[in-house]
């Protein structure tokens, strides 16, 4: 028998499904910044980011009246929906551009990229965007979204060992890309 999943959002989702506007506002306040951050880091600075967040919530509103408590955490489910929407867009971009997905981006420190050093956050964003999608997803879920390793691995459909491998390779690539900044932090 499947174990019941404890979900801190359960009561709010059930209320929102019945149209309770306070619960709706609480869910939007709690989840929208997380979804927006997830989409922004997966898609970069794009108009698609807001579309993904909005579409994910619209799916959540449709699903909320039929939400079955204990089957899954709402936050995890919402992440899955948003990630699927992000991957739809990433695939569309690759189809349009005709470029194969990058399988390894580990450019290492490059002195001529020093012009970006004034804006560390932007540099980090660019380095993240340059990662292969799965490495970026692993880092976004574990580091930025602060999901546990089992939850993140489950979301990505990989083992915990595979998740750790993606994280290690992603972080190694980031360390290389941002090596010129590391000393200044």
């Amino acid at each position: 028998m499947k174990e019941r999943v404890a979900d801190p959002d359960e009561a709010l989702v059930l209320l929102a499904g019945r149209g309770d506007q306070a619960a709706v506002r609480a869910l939007v306040a709690g989840k929208l910044p997380r979804l927006l951050a997830l989409a922004r880091r997966m898609l970069g600075d794009s108009a698609e980011v807001e579309d993904v967040a909005q579409e994910a919530f619209i799916k959540a509103w449709r699903f909320a009246p039929r939400w079955r408590p204990g089957e899954a955490k709402f936050d995890t489910w919402l992440h899955r929906v948003a990630l699927n929407l992000c991957y739809d867009r990433l695939r569309r971009r690759k189809r349009i551009s005709g470029e194969p997905p990058p399988d390894q981006v580990d450019e290492g420190p490059a002195p001529d990229r020093g012009l970006y050093a004034r804006d560390v956050g932007r540099r980090v964003g660019l380095a993240l965007a340059a990662l292969p999608d799965r490495q970026r997803e692993a880092i976004v879920l574990c580091h930025y979204q602060e999901l546990g390793n089992i939850e993140a691995a489950d979301l990505m459909g990989v083992s915990v060992e595979a998740l750790e491998s993606l994280l290690s390779r992603g972080r190694r690539a980031l360390r290389g890309a941002l090596a010129d900044l590391a000393a200044g932090v």
Partner: peptide, 24 residues
Amino acid sequence: ALLRQSVVAPPARALRERITVAAP
């Protein structure tokens, strides 16, 4: 510490309202 420097701006009010209005 470097990764923490990447921050995402909070959601725009218009987006929050669009999502809230679409709720049941």
